[in-house]
Amino acid sequence: MRTLYFDCFSGISGDMVIGALIDAGADPVQMEEELKKLNMDEEYNLSWGKVVKNGITSTKFDVILTSKSDQTHEHSHSHEQEHSHSHSHSHGQDHSHGHSHSHVHEHNLGLEHNHSHVPHNHHGSRTYKQIVEAINEANFNESVANMSLAIFKKIGEAEGHIHGLPLEKVHFHEVGAVDSIIDIIGAAILIDQLGIESVQSSAIPTGSGHIHIDHGIYPVPAPATLEILKGVPIASNDIRSELATPTGAAIAAVLAGNFGSLPPMTVESIGYGAGTKTFENHPNVLRVIIGATK
């Protein structure tokens, strides 16, 4: 059986998942073409390339919102105040992937966290119902559609529970931002493309400390992330930063059939997906291991 293992020693986010899968040999160009079925491609550009994180060569994946989304950047910055120091390090490394858009990264820092917090009337803000309709109308294959819908439902139910709303009333001003839609559906496309038959994961470290979001200052893990990780083993570490985002947590929680150490397997490919932050003592990457299990 072809198995994908998420080795989340530094947490998990949507863009880290896609970066790691590309690094393991998935085809991002085919993913980019598939995503056009959503009819949202005027709202974003995608980039990917190699960066070095604490000595490990990894792939950094970015969703760069187009000029229509300028408002989003202000909200990203306000969320990211506490991380501005660590981001300046990762921004300095990103030039190594040879793309000409490195200046964009300073506008893109908050996107990994799926907390862009665009205003309710902004085009990047979508309701759960709108996202479901967009996936159903896109004519993805059944596997991609089912994975994507299940991950969005997991996040929608968590957000609804926290805000006291039924699922159909959940307004995804956070997860409905364009970058998160791309991260979730893009991950489903790549997992399907790679022929993955089963998914397993390590326990999920969430980090600690506090984050600034539109409702104020919140503890890490953020309430939505913690709700999503109900029933999932959480790993502890001392890093005062948000390691697991709602999107990353939901991808693991929905897709992984088992959480634990690396299963017995014949390893076929390995990928490292870079996160936005840089830590002093360990690489902020997600490792994926793909291989044959019995």
Rank of each mutant, 00 (worst) to 15 (best):
T225W: 07
G19Q: 03
S261E: 15
A24V: 09
N121S: 12
I185P: 09
N108S: 11
G19W: 02
G248V: 14
V267W: 05
S10L: 01
S269K: 13
M16L: 06
H212D: 12
T266C: 08
K60C: 00
N139K: 12
E174T: 01
H173A: 04
H99K: 13
H101M: 09
I18H: 08
A158I: 10
G231S: 11
S100M: 05
L35Q: 12
S269A: 14
D179Y: 07
I22R: 08
G275Y: 03
D214N: 09
S241W: 02
F279Q: 00
E133C: 00
G49N: 01
H95F: 14
M16E: 04
K153M: 07
V267S: 03
E80D: 15
R126D: 00
R2H: 10
P205S: 04
A20T: 07
V220M: 02
H97D: 15
I189K: 03
T57Q: 10
L21H: 08
F152D: 05
I196G: 00
A177W: 03
N121F: 09
T206L: 02
S116E: 14
I181W: 06
S143W: 00
N281F: 02
V170P: 00
G11T: 06
K230E: 13
E280C: 00
F140C: 06
S202K: 07
H103G: 13
I155P: 09
K129T: 13
H212N: 14
I18N: 09
H79N: 15
I56W: 06
R240V: 11
F6W: 04
V267F: 03
V132G: 01
L38N: 08
V52M: 08
S88M: 14
H79T: 12
G275P: 01
A274H: 07
V175W: 02
P166W: 06
N146E: 12
R240H: 14
S13V: 05
Q71L: 12
L262Q: 13
V51G: 01
H87K: 10
L226G: 04
K154E: 08
G176R: 11
I239V: 15
E112V: 10
I185Q: 04
A250T: 10
A244V: 05
H113L: 09
A235G: 01
L35R: 13
E34S: 11
N284C: 07
M1G: 10
L243F: 02
H87S: 03
I18Y: 09
Q193M: 05
K153A: 04
K294V: 03
G14N: 07
D7P: 01
S241P: 00
K53W: 02
H95D: 13
M16R: 05
V118D: 11
A150K: 14
D192T: 07
G209W: 13
G271S: 05
V63W: 05
V104Y: 11
A292T: 13
D179W: 06
V63M: 04
R240E: 15
G19V: 02
E280V: 02
I162L: 07
M1Q: 12
A235N: 03
F172H: 08
D62K: 10
N39H: 14
S13N: 05
N237H: 09
S47N: 09
L4N: 05
A203M: 04
I64D: 06
